[in-house]
Design a protein around this nucleic acid. Sequence first.
RNA 1: GGGCGGGUAGCUCAGUGGUAGAGCGCUGGCUUUACACGCCGGACGUCGCAGGUUCGACCCCUGUCCCGCCCA
Length: 920
Amino acid sequence: MPKQYSPTESEARWYDFWEASGYFAASEDPDDHRPTYTLAIPPPNVTGSLHMGHACRTTFEDVLCRHKRMQGYNTLWVPGIDHAGIATQVVVERQLKREGLTRHDLGREKFIERVWQWKEESGGRILQQLRKMGASCDWPRTKFTMDPDMVRAVREAFVRLYEEGLIYRDTRLVNWDVESQTVLSDLEVEQEENVEGLMFDFAYPLADGDGEVVVSTTRPETMLGDTAVAIHPDDERYRHLHGKYVRHPFVDRMIPVILDPELVDPEFGTGVVKVTPAHDQNDFATGKRHGLEEINILELDGTLNENGGPFQGLERFEARKAVENELANLGLARGSKKHMMTLPRSHRSGTIVEPMISTQWFVKMKPLAAPAIKAVEDGTIQILPPEWSKTYFHWLRNIQDWCISRQLWWGHPIPAWYCDNCEHVTVAREDATACGGCGSTSIRQDDDVLDTWFSSGLWPFSTLGWPDRTLTLSRFYPTQDMETGYDILFFWVARMIMMGLHFMGEVPFTRVLLAGLVTDERGDKMSKVKGNVVDPLDVIYGATGEELIDKAEKAGAKKAGIKYLRTTYPDGFVAYGADALRMTLLSYSTQSRRIALSMKRIEGYRNFANKLWNASRYALMRLSDSSTQATQQCPQPKALANRWVLSRLYQALDISSTGLDAYRLDEASGALYHFVWDEFCDWFLEVSKPALDSGDAALVQETEATLVHALETVLRALHPMMPHITEEIWQRVPKWAEAPKSIMISRFPSALVDAKIDRGAERDFEVVQAFVGSARTIRAEHHVPMSQPLKIHWHTDDEFKRTVLEAERSTIESLARGEMCFEADAAKLNDAAAHFDNAAVFVNPGVRAAVPGVIDTEKERDRLQRELNKVEKELGVVEKKLGNPSFVERAPEAVVEKSNRDATELREKRERLEVALNSL
RNA sequence: GGGCGGGUAGCUCAGUGGUAGAGCGCUGGCUUUACACGCCGGACGUCGCAGGUUCGACCCCUGUCCCGCCCA
């Protein structure tokens, strides 16, 4: 085994081995009666390429699946990809653009063919990348949301909802993306806040006689669609306008003055509001209340239509300018001022969204939402972290109907056909050939496709065979955990719950785990433009600084982004490996919403992997000449260090299991990390050296048994988190005869068995650790080289401690590099200076020692003074507490008792230190 | 405007009603034959601010200021 663990080759080798061995596959065997554990992957976009968000989710999900699998569950992790409507269409359109073509040049059919072709070639690359993370998905079951069986599920869902009256077609004000030329759901619109805009004032002349009313708007061009001006009914200033009309200056239209207490805030602006029902949410509602005409002024591409009068054909922002100028020419402009506002932008294209009147398909949400609310209220579904339940409830309780049609070509076509001869709309599972109303064959299918999230909403059951009642479905549905980012709680999670309850009559999963968003080290969102995207594959395989910059530039990073990259990662990354990345991401997996990924932290876990590797090297070297094998039963050693390490091992396993069960993967991984490094390596391996060299056959045997058991066990416990390196090592560990072929199908170490926690051993070993620690401090402070052994004169009045220290003498002498010498006469240590030449002293609870021949008086004085200060400070706190009568009266007895013990111990220590200081 | 989350060591983050923790960084030393991706030491925090509850608060409550996110 080489000195350094190199992950790259090893990870690939073991991954291939697992996959080829079929270990990722869930069992369909009817005689397999193991409980099931199912987790459906949040299907990444087919256009996607692995980013830290995926890496993070994949790691959590893989840990959960591997853990359950090792615990004996028939585990199914369903992989898949999402067709991602707009995102994909945009990618392919961009390709066409490079060839000088648009999708219209190809036509719908050819275009869709082209998308499929692209999907076959490069789509789904992300699934290969998930493998690099170690994902143990059941790959042969991979689903694509446009696969034929998914199409069937989507159609079934649509038709059923339609038949139940939950899907309807209606004219609404929708969010129109003029660039992508499609409607967007409310969730797909982002609000850009605090944009400085211009509030423009202009006057409408009264139709009869003199006078005018002044209105304000940030979108002057919309006045072309105004069909009313509104005032508050109680506004005395405008009482004279009741029942009057104003004249539109550009189009021949009389506009009524209406009274509306809901729309108008008399305090705001002039107290008069222009009403454009076809292009503003509030105005639309107002229009409905007053029966106003809805005049659409825009073409689908954002230019003005025939209702724009003289402005027809202008692009919307040009039209804005032109309207302003023309109003000024007519003397109707009344000035403008800066105004902070919020702009609605398209999630995808980034363009400013226009509210437009349009006929679209909707899903009635209230009836679907009610059971979904209940499921979380009554605990059928648990959301973690629990704070998110509030957000979930708030959204569902105020839910609006869901606009599901999209004016795209790529997606699930809406299974609705319109008849040329009658009004009937035919909605059918199979492609319709004739009108369901009049039988005419002159029908055409709806041009639109469904919102991508419509198919994703069915994911937990469509992937298992629905609408057929398959065995797979009955066996693996409902799934258990749904792990995903909180950013799609509404988009996806809530909709899956609603759809699952509606179509399956059962929740799709019982627990929702919401992970935070991965950001760069500064806490900024990763974005290609900012150049701060850390590619998980670069972390796994390494990349030079130039490669990082090159990649960022190609992705369109701005100068500042490149600069950030250059200064933050000048040397790029070495190959840290997937296991190190996984551990890092796990260590962040807390309640926090932000995961500011730090490269140094990844390096730390890479070092941990190496530590584990070298500890194993040591263990295997030491075992090489012996027949010792790992056993499934815990050995029963006699030596203190052996008993201690096993006790600590099972303690760590307990914490780790508790963490896993509570989805606190940071705690689960942390417990094992600290056990391996701080206890197994730093103490146990060091103690094992003299033990294995002792020549005492019994001691050697039990130490070997303990060593291999602890190593083999902790490897299994670590496997869900660091699958590759644990397999690499585990394969080399000598094991019991019927050991499985892979660690990933071995049994997860069961946590706590009380008998294995050895309190006595832990307490005794702590005495040893304290003694060794003190001796080491003296050596370090006085710069005594390792080549110079210490002589440690010690004394204790505590029989137990004396027994322990005597028994562990050889261990301590080896660890501290010194010779222990018990002084029966305690007085000698009280006045160490008189009895030992140039002695440094240390004080442990109940134990004192003098180390002659090392002293540098100044340094010793410093060290003792520092220690004394610390003791006095602590003692001050404790004494103050004990001096408070209400504390003694009211605090729990155990707390008071402990304080008393602490005080006694501290006083003794203070006294010893003072004596030592004075004798210097 | 409403809601949610966060403000703890230089940095990134844990944390508990009973004397503040980790990793990295900093710092002193060390070829201790598993590991320098290491070992042994050391320094470093009035736990955002102000009140309150409590014998005791970083932790609970109220207010307040910053930062971030979501919704309108």
